[in-house]
């Protein structure tokens, strides 16, 4: 049987494609791009939350936050490893990130301005990420799907911790409640943008759906997120900053307003509040670490040479 036909059949039958299986070049490239962007998002995502580790307001919160940011580094590692099963190279992908040739989730170009942001990122941003990622646990490429199962479990845990921080803050002082509401106001629309542009404007959706790399459209996932978030906001006692948000009994879903898509495209295009800072931070860490990586490689090579002689 023709390789391409066999591939199409595997994917259509919801079976997994494994690293040694034949796959179309376009599938491989799309996957590398998508997984690398996801890995970059984890690594860049360490910065906005890492911003608060040194100032965490209790030792318990400091431990939770540090552990969470550490998990993000771990997620980046599994995902880069998944790209390597497709023939990509972590060093090259890092170069693409710091030279701006590959993107990461635009949400991390927004600044974290109060400690409530740590909780709101857990609740809304990790929540939106889970909505996007849960379907990927059934994505067609085996190593990616398996990495996503592990990541989703940990993300879900982070989301609960974020929500728990907000519940605690809402039961605290008026100043804390105001801090939570202010943070929700800033993060709500960017969180909705995380699902990408409306389906009508999304260029990558159709082919990715066919290849089972992507499983739901942007608008479907956005709707799911809104429907799930509304009761949580109510329980928390915060107002979501959308006057058009209301239950529509006919659709069985919430109606809601549109984010400012001009702002979305500006941020995606590199002109967000912290785009340059985030990439520069990553570039500096990478360049400052160059001598360390070179030393480790040189030591390993000398060690191998010495072993060879002995």
């Amino acid at each position: 049987m023709d390789l391409e036909a066999q591939f199409e059949r595997t994917v259509a039958a919801e079976q997994r494609v494994e690293p040694r299986d034949w796959m179309p070049d376009g599938y491989r490239k799309t996957l590398i791009r998508q997984i690398a962007q996801h890995a970059h998002s984890e690594i860049i995502g360490m910065q906005p939350e890492g911003n608060w580790i040194s100032r965490a307001p209790s030792l318990r919160r400091k431990a939770i936050l540090l552990a969470k940011v550490q998990d993000e580094a771990g997620h980046g590692l599994y995902l880069y490893a998944a790209t390597e099963t497709l023939g990509a190279d972590r060093g090259e992908l890092t170069e693409k990130l710091i030279s701006g040739r590959q993107k990461y989730s635009s949400i991390f170009n927004y600044p974290t301005l109060s400690y409530a942001d740590v909780g709101v990122i857990g609740w809304l941003v990790d929540g939106a990420a889970i909505c996007n990622q849960v379907p990927l646990c059934r994505t067609s490429y085996g190593p990616y799907a398996r990495a996503m199962i592990r990541i989703c479990k940990e993300e879900s845990f982070h989301q609960r911790q974020g929500y728990e921080l907000l519940l605690t803050m809402m039961s605290g002082t008026d100043a804390q409640r105001a801090m939570v509401q202010e943070s929700v106001n800033r993060w709500w629309w960017p969180s909705l943008m995380m699902f990408g542009p409306p389906d009508a404007e999304s260029s990558n959706t159709e082919q990715s759906m066919k290849w089972r790399i992507k499983r739901n459209t942007n608008d479907e996932l956005r709707q799911k997120f809104v429907d799930m978030t509304v009761p949580q906001a109510r329980k928390l006692g915060v107002t979501l900053p959308d006057p058009e948000l209301k239950w529509n009994p006919e659709r069985g879903h919430h109606d809601f307003g549109q984010p400012d898509w001009d702002e979305f495209w500006q941020v995606v295009g590199g002109n967000g509040p912290t785009n340059k800072q985030r990439v520069e931070h990553r570039r500096k860490a990478h360049e400052d670490g160059e001598w360390v990586r070179a030393a480790a490689a040189a030591h390993a090579a000398k060690h191998t040479a010495r072993e060879g002689v002995a």
């Binding site: 580790i53 431990a63 540090l66 580094a73 980046g76 860490a285 670490g289 360390v292």
Partner: peptide
């Protein structure tokens, strides 16, 4: 913990955060 997101490689970000967490646990 100041190293978090600034380490020479990702493995070291994880390791230094881990050490910082152990020490924080002892401190508590």
């Amino acid at each position: 913990a100041e190293w978090c997101s600034r380490a020479p490689e990702l493995e070291e970000d994880v390791a230094l955060a881990n050490i910082a967490l152990d020490l924080l646990g002892q401190a508590r």
